[in-house]
Design a binder for these strands. Structure first.
Length: 364
DNA sequence: TACCCGTGGAG
DNA sequence: TCTCCAAGGGT
């Protein structure tokens, strides 16, 4: 059905020399990163989860704080989930944090705190997919397992002239086969990290620095003058726009109304200010909606401003309104009143940290 | 398979 | 301002 692996490797491709050139360059040029100070599998694991779809510069401070707070699998396993989410606040893709803690708990319970060093057990842990499994096995345990991420697909697509669409999920399997063929068995850690480091520093998506490339002589795309056209990557679809009213409701004690988001889905388990879908909803309907949802009567509404927040797959257009409530004790539902100090302890998504600014500026 | 799931930086 | 993204995984 599909071609044999060897058909994808050019006849004249010198695997040994390629490995040597790549790893020699990596040893000389590798960045001094916090998770490269030792080979603690736990730290490698945490770093790999944080680095998923996230830039190195963004991760560094989060990694340092996280490891300082949870230095061992036992420390993370014993922490409150809310505390873990607070450490993850602002990093995005929050299910990573939940899955990481869940998997670490399993490691502590089933493996006495020792991270598994085999593909089967490691790959069964929550949040560890094919890439992360290979990264941990190669970097922490020096096993010759492929770790194919976006960097590796881009680099190998150019080196070996692969024209398959790297945006398709099925294409990753092809690159895993190719990586398995060219990986160094002497130093799988340096080889895999070298491939990724090359993708991050030299073989970049736009304007690759071929003149500085340590494996230029091995690169099919460069020889063809087509390094700019590879890899082939189809475009994603546009984000859907969602309009909302975000309500800042303050009581007589200068407490503000907040709620926890559902345990599943977008921003799961994080806190937020009440949000009303604004689709075809006027002020009267908004007051009615608020009464139904929270059991509180709005007296007057004041528009404080507008914020746009862009997610990977959707956009929130938020009108921020301050609600003055009718006096007296009413039957509060669903949400709760929070003091200023609680807002600092609970995890909020960045979109609602923006709202928090409005609250703090409106109440001296 | 296609879609869901965040954020901030670069050009 | 707009587009593309950055060391993916879950469902």
């Amino acid at each position: 059905m599909n071609h044999l692996n060897s058909e994808r490797i050019p006849e004249q491709f010198n695997i040994q020399k390629f490995q040597l050139d790549l790893m020699t360059w990596f040893q000389r040029e590798k960045r001094d990163l916090p998770w490269r100070k030792d080979r603690d599998p736990y730290k490698i694991w945490v770093s790999e989860i944080m680095l998923q779809q996230t830039r190195v510069d963004t991760v560094i401070p989060y990694f340092n704080r996280f490891i300082s707070r949870f230095p061992t699998p036992e420390a993370l396993a014993g922490a409150d989930e809310q505390e873990v989410l607070k450490e993850w606040e602002g990093l995005g893709y929050y299910s990573r944090a939940r899955n990481l803690q869940s998997a670490v708990k399993e490691v502590v319970e089933k493996y006495d705190g020792n991270i598994p060093d085999n593909p089967a057990e490691l790959g069964r842990l929550k949040g560890i997919g094919p890439y992360t499994k290979g990264a941990i096995l190669s970097i922490a345990f020096n096993q010759p397992e492929p770790a194919v991420d976006g960097n590796v697909m881009r680099v190998l697509s150019r080196i070996l002239y692969v024209e398959e669409d790297i945006a398709k999920a099925s294409t990753k399997k092809l690159f895993e086969k190719l990586a398995r063929e060219v990986i160094s068995h002497d130093d799988p850690s340096s080889f895999n990290q070298g491939l990724m480091e090359l993708g991050a520093l030299i073989c970049t998506p736009k304007n690759p620095q071929c003149m500085l490339c340590p494996v230029q002589e091995h690169c099919e795309a460069f020889h063809a003058g087509l390094e700019q056209t590879l890899p082939v990557k189809s475009k994603g679809k546009k984000q859907k726009i969602q309009p909302y009213y975000v309500i800042i409701a303050v009581n007589d004690h200068q407490e503000v109304l907040i709620e926890q988001r559902p345990k599943r889905g977008l921003l799961a388990g994080l806190y937020q200010f009440p949000m009303a879908p604004a689709e075809k909803r006027d002020i009267a309907q908004l007051k009615n909606w608020f009464l139904n949802e929270y059991g509180l009567r709005i007296n007057h509404l004041e528009l404080l401003g507008h914020e746009k927040h862009v997610f990977s797959h959707l956009v929130w257009e938020m009108d921020i309104v301050k609600a003055s409530l009718e006096g007296g004790t009413l039957s509060l539902k669903r949400a709760s009143w929070a003091k200023e100090e609680e807002l600092q302890i609970l995890p909020f998504p960045v979109s609602h940290q923006k709202i928090m600014q409005y609250f703090q500026e409106s109440t001296p």
